[in-house]
Computed example of a mutant assay.
Amino acid sequence: MNIEPLAGHPTCWHRAGQGARAALMVHCSLAHSGAWRGLEKRLSDQFTMLAFDLPGHGRSADWDGAGDFQDASVQIAEALLDRETSGPVDLIGHSYGGTIALRLAQRAPKRVRSLTMFEPVLFAAARDHPAYAENAAYMNGPFADAMRSGDRMEAARLFNVMWGRDAAWQALPQSLREDMARRIHLIPAGKPVTHDDIHDQIAPGALERVELPVLLMEGARSPALVGAVHDVLEARLPNVQRHVIGGAGHMAPITHPAEVGDAILAFLRQTAPTRP
């Protein structure tokens, strides 16, 4: 594990696996690169994987709040790829990390061999769906109220419950709940991407130009908004497969790494022959 400046930001990153294919993995909000441990184990024979802690996450330096959070994350990812890889890579992104992986593919498609996104939170794609209005009301109501009052633990609980169940929050160790509460301000920092599409990732023609193979994955128990977003992405991406992980929710890359890993390997066997 290394901590060093990438794009001017002190960043923690690591390498795993010994496979012929190079991959970059981008974790979800409030997690860190260690969340990929189970999936790395599953993919280690096929991939040499890079993973880093997003700004303000894990052991990376705090985000200074300057500019756009996704911009900062993308620049770090590109700096890591520039230094540690020499050819096309497979991108794997979870949740907010999926929006980053997609943007990397949109910015430099020639350096990307395939794109796997597990529930990318591009909610703006489903603005016309009732689930979007429900999500916005929740985030602008109870969640925003907790943030304004300074109750970071309650804000973290509300965010966690939205993506799972209250019982799942109660089952988390207190140390993990406290860690999520410390970082909860990074959730509103993602809103310009998730709800406002500040970088036009879903603008007319933007998805249609992503011609490389895309695997879109979701949990069978995930919120309705996930399916609504995926319906739009599936309709617009020209070379996409969609896969549902039975019995899983939004955190399937952590809770169901074997199933997620097997789906990725099957997707790559079908779409992109292994190249050195």
Rank of each mutant, 00 (worst) to 15 (best):
D200H: 15
I187C: 06
A31D: 15
H129P: 01
N140S: 07
E178T: 10
T255V: 05
Q70W: 14
R209C: 05
L186P: 03
S60T: 12
P223I: 13
E134S: 09
M139Y: 09
R42P: 01
L102I: 12
A136Q: 14
R148Y: 04
Q241W: 11
H243G: 00
G97M: 07
E78K: 03
F267N: 00
G164F: 11
N2Y: 13
A266P: 06
A168G: 06
K41E: 13
M162L: 14
L6E: 14
E178D: 15
R37A: 15
F52V: 03
G98N: 07
Q174P: 04
L24D: 10
P5H: 06
L215S: 04
F123Y: 14
I202R: 01
M180N: 11
D262G: 05
I202C: 08
E178M: 09
P213W: 12
G19R: 08
Q106H: 11
M25P: 00
A156E: 14
G141C: 10
F143T: 03
L176N: 06
P142E: 07
D145G: 04
L172T: 07
F123N: 04
L158P: 01
T48W: 04
P223K: 14
T194W: 15
G164N: 12
L172H: 09
F69W: 07
P55H: 07
L24W: 02
C28D: 13
